[in-house]
Design a protein around this nucleic acid. Structure first.
Length: 312
DNA sequence: CGTTTTTGACCCGCGC
DNA sequence: GCGCGGGTCAAAAACG
């Protein structure tokens, strides 16, 4: 019996993930290399502050864990369905990783930035020594345990302090917008009569369909929009659609899974454009949302290096 | 009518 | 053990 504390993945899981993390997979942020490079790359554009006060999660943790298990990485049977393996992975990831990091967002209005995910507020608290209350948000995706806290800086009323916690188990909305232009999901309706087994899959499909609809409505706008990459690494997002992607195409998998920002490195310049005080995310409300998220952990080092986007 | 926000209550960890 | 502060719950209200 192996020590469960030192491994989260089976060999088969390991294999699966390694394929995704290997080489220049841009999906994750590598904190070690980020400190200096990040500062350099951000320096010229830091009208906005970027801080990471908490331990930055991401690939390093994962890979280090994976490396532990990689020695027994023999060819694995495909007896397990990919989907079930994914489910297991998700559970393990979510249980294991406690991602928590903080961003400072300069908002130009009352509204906070839209990071591509859909959040539901579940609480608000007044914080000691702070004139502004802290709001607590949870990802609306029932499978996703990601949370975030938003509070306004007492020193800089225009600055929002956003603390992300947890991993998203799904794609961002913006991700779908550009990565699946011909997505032709039927307008999936929420069905309550499904078996629980199918429910998880259903949820994904529903969200995809909804996302697609939203995106179509604002397609013109988002074409030019500097879409953010995931503030939180959406590990499981990769897996959610992996099966489909593999069925559809044997190549370009990573491409489809990589958030827009990653696929369009040139957009990194607009990401932190200090002069743009306009929000531009598909799910942003039409009411002149004005904020700009400015979190860019060594974008250049990640994107500028192996990921040559094949933007259509 | 379903979903989201609001908000007071409750819970829990921590320091004293 | 007690009080405090922060995080979450859940019922009601608001919203679309």
């Amino acid at each position: 019996m192996e020590n469960p504390g030192t491994r989260w993945f089976d060999e088969s899981d390991d294999e699966l993930i390694r394929e995704l993390l290997d080489n220049e997979s841009p999906f994750f942020v590598l904190p070690q290399t980020s400190e200096t490079e990040e500062n350099l790359s951000l320096e010229p554009i830091t009208d906005h502050l970027v801080t990471k006060t908490h331990s930055e999660p991401t690939a390093v943790d994962i890979e280090s864990e994976l490396s532990i298990t990689s020695k027994n990485n023999e060819s694995t049977e495909q007896s397990n369905t990919l989907q079930s393996r994914i489910a297991i992975l998700e559970e393990r990831l979510v249980g294991k990783i406690d991602n928590k990091y903080t961003l400072k967002i300069k908002s130009c209005g009352n509204e906070m930035s839209d990071d591509g995910y859909k959040w539901r507020k579940y609480g608000q608290k007044s914080i000691k020594n702070s004139p502004h209350p802290r709001s607590y948000y949870r990802c609306t995706n029932p499978r996703c345990s990601a949370k975030k806290q938003v509070e306004r800086s007492s020193q800089e009323p225009e600055t929002l302090i956003v603390t992300y916690e947890g991993l998203h188990l799904h794609f961002t909305y913006t991700h779908f917008l550009l990565n699946q232009p011909h997505l032709t999901y039927p307008p999936a309706k929420k069905s309550k009569t499904n078996t629980k087994q199918a429910e998880a899959q259903q949820i994904l499909e529903i969200e995809e369909a909804q996302t697609q609809q939203n995106q179509e409505n604002e397609e013109e706008q988002t074409q030019e929009v500097p879409t953010l990459f995931d503030p939180i690494p959406s590990i499981a997002a990769m897996f959610d659609h992996q099966q489909d992607l593999w069925e559809v195409r044997s190549e370009g998998l990573l491409e489809d899974m990589v958030p827009l920002m990653i696929r369009r490195p040139s957009d990194t310049t607009t990401l932190s454009n200090p002069s743009s005080c306009s929000s531009s995310y598909p799910s942003s409300p039409p009411t002149s949302s004005s904020s700009s998220l400015n979190w860019s952990p060594n974008i250049s080092s990640i994107y500028g290096n192996g990921v040559t986007s094949s933007t259509p």
